[in-house]
């Protein structure tokens, strides 16, 4: 039997190391957290997409997922709570060559930042928004979010959540997003494929990535660290093109995953150029007669 040396000189490089600020590792994410998996899926997608990474910017808000911007070795902005999307809007409009990825959490994007999400989708602002949905505010210790299931417990709903959570893909679709998908961090290949597709697609793309928070959500809802992953495995129903109005998350009946929306309509910049800067467009159009 071959003897495996206990000490090797150097660990092999991770294939995504060139996209990580390794001098900032270890990261802050808890054991059992799924953000790192979604993050590496996003990095794999960025790498695989073939886009110019020097022209690619990651923008985050505040929260556990918001820390992603601090670990990616690209131009990256860790902004204020909920404001990643309007900050990214300014970046994109000032330099349309930039590829924009907003990576943030459900609390950041849909409670405090909900208004900005709605309007960026309506405008079809050209960016990819990845929402890590862990069903609660993890950074602050497990409070109820706009995505927490009805009756689920959190530190601010100690007897159960009286509210109804958002159906995020429906919201994105209703607001005008041109690409909408939902996966879990367990469906890593599908998630990576979706992020790749979204990055390469112009317009406002939205991907919801369900991700466990065993420390703050699971603990208060009688879930052991692997329980949520089992639910992802057992209750997942992959149904591409599903009607967005049917996508409420139901851990009893099933969680519908897939690519739901993939359509084309002009982006804000295309419309702005067409209406306000026709000369810029003409410069780019080759003359037919010549």
């Amino acid at each position: 039997m071959q003897k495996i040396p206990m000490t090797s000189n150097k660990q092999p490089d991770h294939p995504l190391d060139d996209l990580i600020r390794t001098d900032r590792i270890p990261h802050i994410w808890c054991p059992g957290c799924g953000i790192g998996t979604v993050f590496s899926s996003c990095l794999a997608a960025l790498k695989g997409s073939g886009i110019d990474l020097q022209k690619t910017v990651m923008v985050s808000g505040i929260g556990c997922s918001g820390r992603a911007a601090g670990y990616v070795k690209l131009d990256s902005f860790h902004t204020t709570h909920g404001r990643a999307i309007p900050f990214a809007t300014g970046l994109k409009l000032a330099n349309p060559e930039l590829n924009i990825v907003v990576f943030s959490g459900d609390g950041d994007l849909f409670a405090i930042g909900g208004n900005h999400f709605i309007h960026a989708a309506r405008r079809n602002m050209d960016m990819t928004v990845i929402c890590v949905n862990n069903l609660n505010y993890g950074m602050t210790g497990g409070q109820v979010a706009a995505t927490t299931p009805h009756l689920a417990k959190s530190t601010t709903t100690p007897a159960g959540n009286p509210e109804t959570p958002f159906n995020l893909p429906l919201m994105a679709y209703a607001c005008g997003a041109t690409y909408v998908a939902r996966w879990t961090m367990l469906h890593i290949r599908d998630l990576t494929d979706s992020i790749t597709e979204a990055i390469c697609k112009k317009g406002f793309s939205f991907i919801e990535a369900l991700s466990p928070c065993p420390v703050n959500y699971g603990r208060r809802n009688k879930q052991k660290p692997l329980d949520m992953l089992k639910l992802y495995q057992e209750k997942a129903i992959i149904k591409n093109d599903a009607d967005p109005s049917t996508l409420d998350i139901d851990f009893e009946k099933g969680i519908i995953l897939g690519k739901f929306i993939d359509l084309d309509r002009p982006t804000f910049i295309e419309e702005y150029d067409k209406i306000y800067r026709p000369s810029r467009l003409q410069e780019n159009v080759p003359e037919l007669n010549s």
Binding site: F77, P86, G90, L91, A94, H119
Partner: peptide, 14 residues
């Protein structure tokens, strides 16, 4: 809020 965030973003785009 968005207006102020947007001008910070555009400033970082140069």
């Amino acid at each position: 809020i968005g207006a102020m965030a947007a001008i910070l973003g555009s400033s970082w785009a140069g």
